[in-house]
Design a protein around this nucleic acid. Structure first.
Lengths: 227, 227
DNA sequence: TTCGTCATGTAATGGGTTACATGATTAC
DNA sequence: GTAATCATGTAACCCATTACATGACGAA
């Protein structure tokens, strides 16, 4: 249950859970998920795959010909597949909903694999991220209130813009959380799913108390060194 | 003219150009500028200061008492000041407007010090960043067009949201560029400045050709490994 | 035949964090 | 007296990038 599982590892395992892939292809898909759209280097990917093999979470098999959807023989490449251990590990990672799941670096990956994540976990992560962002917003507004006047025009504008981006992300989360709740309600009522992810962000309960469970991943909420 | 000058170094020099500061205080201000609002660790800051001292760009002086605005004796701390070399170096960094100035990591710092930057350079950096983002947008839309159908709901939503954020930043840049141009026009006409940074983003010329000058910082535009 | 893309890797390097170590000063 | 904040630093480590090395395949 302990193993750190970096963002990259989670992403690799998550993708391989959909279908076996070789490194080169893996990288391309990774770029769509990781950080939005930035190139991950092979210098990170291959050592990561190596390590996963060593730990028995995936296996690599040289596949010379006839890939599933017989395109063309191409060339020898190593197709990686999840092992039973790997699947188990992935499930445990995907089941966690502590701070580690909603911090900047990991949230995106976790969100990208929401399709393989339990509905309650999804909600917990979304709410966790939202309160994390709100907390940050509060900090910035506080410190801004104290130092606003002695900041020049551009610094101020940069701050304003940053704040706005975060506020927008909070509203995005509001919408997603509402959608998830609607779905939950529909599920328990036994109705066919109707809610779409792109539903408008209803104003949501004005004061959402969110007693998120910090059950895993060590790492508690009150770390100093934040403001 | 060559020296790499990391983001952190630029930020430090830029802040010290306003007024001499000691490490602890420096860090707090750095956090407002760098990456928006994230804690920079002393483990990065102090070695950086050390290196700047070694290279003669700043000098540290133990200041035991009477800080400028006589608060209280506090305690021995090391107040850093820019040297002539340091000022010169900073000016040359601030004068550069190549790709290195508008990439993700450095753009924020450069923008934060626009108050100390030449107007033409400001425009060039803003335009450079905008075309960088547009280029990225194009790439994502292209690859999205090819793989859209086999992506699940959440991955798709993540991508949509990422795209939206970037589009928003482009509009932000549109506004800033217009403001800068207005100011330039006002300047050459000898009028008192009236344009505010928060002016609405006019639709801007529908197709802005931007022949940005890649004059410094090695690093050309057509690096592979991007899509 | 040469260029672009597919494909897999390693070594050096870089830029940061965390944890550690230390100690004075201030507020409760 | 004791906790929080001020203040400065070092050492170990992490995770990723860049540059390098290699080579096959398909298309121009």
């Amino acid at each position: 249950m302990r193993s750190k599982s970096s963002v990259l590892e989670t992403a690799v395992l998550g993708l391989l859970n959909d279908s076996p892939l070789h490194g080169y292809e893996l990288r391309k898909r990774l770029n769509l998920v990781l950080g939005s759209f930035r190139a991950l280097s092979y210098g990170s990917l291959y050592p990561c795959l190596k390590s996963l093999v060593t730990r028995g979470l995936i296996v690599g098999a040289a596949s010379n010909e006839a890939p599933p959807h017989a395109l063309s023989g191409k060339r020898a490449r190593i197709v990686y597949t999840l092992t039973a251990d790997g699947k188990e590990h992935l499930q445990s990672v995907l089941a966690s909903s502590g701070p580690a799941a909603w911090e900047d670096d990991s949230f995106d990956v976790r969100f990208a694999f929401f399709g393989q994540t339990d509905a309650e976990t999804r909600i917990r992560i979304l709410e966790g991220r939202r309160s994390r962002l709100n907390e940050r917003l509060e900090n910035v507004r506080d410190s801004s209130a104290r130092t606003r006047e002695r900041l020049d025009e551009y610094t101020l504008e940069l701050q304003r813009h940053g704040l706005e981006q975060v506020e927008r992300e909070v509203r995005w989360l509001d919408g997603l959380i509402n959608t998830e709740r609607d779905r939950r309600r529909a599920r328990t009522a036994g109705v066919t799913p109707g809610a779409s992810l792109t539903a408008d962000a209803q104003p949501a309960a004005p004061d959402q108390i969110n007693p998120y469970v910090v059950d895993d991943e060590g790492r508690d909420t009150d770390s100093k060194e934040r403001g």
